[in-house]
């Protein structure tokens, strides 16, 4: 029991440290402190509203989708289908980028190709459909189109570049880490 509590404190120690920092800011710079707490609170509400369905879907994916199926559609030999699926998964998603990492974790665990996981991450961060529409209405169609074309190329290039830059041992460690989750 003692060790369990110790582990909990250890895992949350950075969080506690930041809370203490924020309280210190609140005491010495009340305006900054209260504004930032307000922002944190509204972000927390947003996070708590968006994360439950994402994690439930991830749990279901983990239980129901066979590893062989994932490897077939998004694995090393999945080719263009894997790439398109990765783009679709990321673009159709909702939520901030940090919510994409647990999704990436499950994809890795199930045997998806690393570059496809990076493509999903890239698409999640930039080519989400509602975001694109919003970009066109605030910054103009031309701006949006140029950026979207570049993003589609950039996401793929960054994904393959990152995969190529990693030594084999590092990639194995990433998959090992994912399967332990």
């Amino acid at each position: 029991m003692k060790t369990k509590e110790a582990r909990l404190v250890k895992r949350y120690r950075i969080f506690f440290l930041l809370v203490a920092l924020n309280i210190a800011v609140l005491i010495f710079f009340p305006a900054v402190g209260s504004k930032s707490l307000q922002l944190t609170w509204s972000n927390l509400l947003e996070m708590m509203s968006i994360l439950p369905p994402i994690f439930i879907l991830l749990g279901l994916l983990d239980v129901w989708v066979k590893r062989e199926t994932m490897i077939k559609y998004m694995g090393d030999d999945s080719g263009i289908i894997g790439v398109l699926l990765a783009f679709f998964l990321g673009s159709a998603a909702a939520g901030p980028l940090y919510a994409a990492f647990p999704v990436a974790g499950v994809l890795l665990k199930k045997g998806s190709k690393l570059s496809n996981v990076f493509i999903m991450l890239g698409a999640w961060s930039t080519t989400k459909i509602p975001l694109i529409l919003f970009e066109a209405s605030s910054l103009g169609l031309k701006f949006m189109l140029i950026r979207m074309v570049m993003d589609l190329i950039g996401i793929a290039v960054i994904a393959y570049f990152t995969e190529r830059m990693l030594p084999k041992g590092e990639i194995e460690a990433i998959y090992q880490n994912a399967s332990n989750r």
Partner: peptide
């Protein structure tokens, strides 16, 4: 932790 950093 990220939420607090973003807030500040």
């Amino acid at each position: 932790s990220i939420l607090i950093i973003i807030g500040i």
